[in-house]
């Protein structure tokens, strides 16, 4: 039995704008969250959502239902966000990687204490700031691959499809991103 969303999708595919509006109302904020994480800019994220939804409307007849509508829509949104980054934020250059970040060597051993102490809990906002700084040090590709895996819960295989990478390149992007994140904790030790 078809869900409400499946019925809206079906009607929207046949040109029913009210049905498409329902879909927009259901998904727009989640799409914004994804795009904002990638672009790190509310304006760029909003533009990306706008483009993504317009593209979705135009290509609805091509939606074959193999992936869920949500997955299909998120994939379009990720690409729209990447496009916004390229068009609107060419100045955003990731910090050059250090030698360690390019290595396959293990890095978790290089840290001090593993558990956050009370001081570090008290410094939660500072950790958040450091996380933001270190997310900014990632390339767009690294950040996107990492956020899709960590925050959106996409599988590596889905990430590879979304970013048009092979599985190995997707894993490497995630590994490099996590290596860059270690700086989020180092200043607090």
């Amino acid at each position: 039995m078809a869900t409400d969303e499946e019925r809206w999708v079906d009607r929207a595919r046949r040109g029913d704008r009210n049905a498409f509006r329902r879909l927009v109302e259901t998904h727009a904020r989640a799409l914004f969250a994804v795009c904002a994480r990638i672009t790190r800019d509310a304006t760029l994220a909003e533009d990306a959502v706008q483009e993504a939804l317009f593209n979705a409307w135009r290509h609805l007849p091509d939606f074959d239902g193999r992936a869920s509508f949500r997955t299909w829509l998120h994939r379009i949104a990720v690409n729209a966000a990447l496009e916004q980054m390229r068009r609107g934020a060419r100045h955003e250059a990731a910090a050059p990687p250090t030698r360690d970040e390019n290595d396959d060597d293990d890095f978790l051993l290089q840290h001090g204490s593993d558990e956050p102490g009370p001081e570090q809990h008290a410094l939660g906002s500072e950790i958040s700031r450091h996380v933001e700084t270190n997310l900014a040090r990632m390339t767009v590709l690294e950040r996107t691959a990492f956020l899709l895996r960590h925050t959106e819960g996409h599988s590596i295989e889905e990430i590879a499809q979304t970013l048009s990478l092979n599985i190995s390149a997707s894993k490497q992007a995630i590994f490099r991103a996590v290596r860059k994140l270690r700086g989020a904790l180092q200043p607090l030790r």
């Binding site: 593993d114 958040s128 996380v131 960590h150 925050t151 994140l181 270690r182």
Partner: peptide, 9 residues
């Protein structure tokens, strides 16, 4: 711990 910090951001 490191990845948990991302969730808290």
């Amino acid at each position: 711990h490191m990845l948990g910090a991302v969730d808290a951001a």
